[in-house]
């Protein structure tokens, strides 16, 4: 920690001589201690998953949700300081609502990410505030059909100029990760929190940028990656929480919803099995080495 003792880390809104904002970097440390969150952008939807660390045995299973709904078609998950994340969600909901009030249509995922990026960035500018201690992953599905304006009259001409063009689609899945600095990028697969390194390594193997994977496959991979990223020996127990968003013709009908229990449990079963198989293989390799 080269920053300690220099004084440049004592206030937000003050750069160090080598151009760093130490308060932001400390906020990143808060994120790095939080439970792992990931998001996968699939061909026909987006999956969010989080390793919810069980901080108390007195929690009811399935209670205290970590993934939040922002709007019908938008969800968010975050790693780091939970209260900061809750405020992030509140603000995101306000933005989504304001967008609807103004434009009478749902906010595109990219615009929400932009607004929230701007919001977080503002918390790096003033000495009276501290940056957000979270990295958030925002997922959404912008409808592929021309989305009807809420309560519009009629559908306009069916052909000709201004008419609906056959086969033309819009929107699609969107995935963004927003860091304490306000920096945000769009991702094929995003991971943050304690197990992000392992999770990123797994995400990179998936060929999300090329061929892509289906939403159903995405759910299974997400479950597996959370299990891989979790260190049984070091970390506390955890619960897997997952949500997904498909297009209007998919399983969630364009909405952000929790993954149904049956689907989640099947994904968890496969995840555990995959881990066991890996261990066995490692075991075999070790045996082979022993023989040599």
């Amino acid at each position: 920690m080269t920053s300690i003792g220099t004084g440049y880390d004592l206030s937000n809104s003050i750069f160090s001589p080598d151009g760093r904002n130490f308060q932001v970097e400390y906020a990143v440390k808060a994120v790095e201690n939080g439970g792992t969150s990931i998001g996968i952008r699939c061909k026909d939807g987006v999956v969010l998953a989080v390793e919810k660390v069980i901080a108390s045995k007195l929690w009811r299973p399935g209670a205290n949700k970590r993934i939040a709904t922002i709007d019908r078609h938008l969800g968010a998950v975050y790693s780091g300081m939970i209260p900061d994340g809750r405020h992030f969600v509140d603000r995101a909901r306000d933005e989504a609502r304001a967008w609807r009030d103004t434009w009478k249509s749902p906010i595109p995922t990219a615009d929400l990410a932009s607004r929230m990026g701007g919001y977080l960035q503002a918390y790096t500018l003033y000495s009276s505030v501290r940056p957000f201690g979270i990295t958030a992953i925002v997922a959404g599905f912008d409808p592929s059909q021309p989305s009807p304006v809420d309560g519009e009259v009629g559908r306009g001409p069916s052909v000709g100029p201004g008419g609906v063009k056959e086969g033309l689609t819009h929107g699609g899945p969107g995935l963004y990760m927003i860091e304490p600095s306000g920096l945000y990028w769009g991702y094929y697969g995003a991971a943050t929190g304690k197990g992000r390194q392992a999770a990123k390594a797994e995400l990179e193997k998936l060929d999300l940028a090329g061929e892509g994977i289906s939403l159903e496959q995405g759910v299974k991979e997400a479950a597996r990656i959370i299990y891989v990223a979790h260190d049984d020996n070091k970390d506390k127990e955890f619960e897997l929480e997952m949500s997904w968003i498909s297009d209007v013709d998919g399983p969630t009908k364009g909405r952000h919803e929790e993954v149904p229990r049956a689907v989640r449990e099947e994904a968890e079963r496969l995840a555990k099995k995959a881990l066991d198989d890996d261990d066995e293989e490692e075991g075999k390799k070790d045996d082979e080495k022993m023989e040599e």
Binding site: R60, A68, T69, R72, R93, R97, E258, P260, R261
Partner: peptide, 18 residues
């Protein structure tokens, strides 16, 4: 009513509550 339904869905319990 749409915004009411969205607000309601924030706290919607899981689809198959335990």
């Amino acid at each position: 009513l749409t915004s009411l339904a969205i607000d309601e869905s924030y706290s919607a319990p899981s689809l198959d509550s335990d």
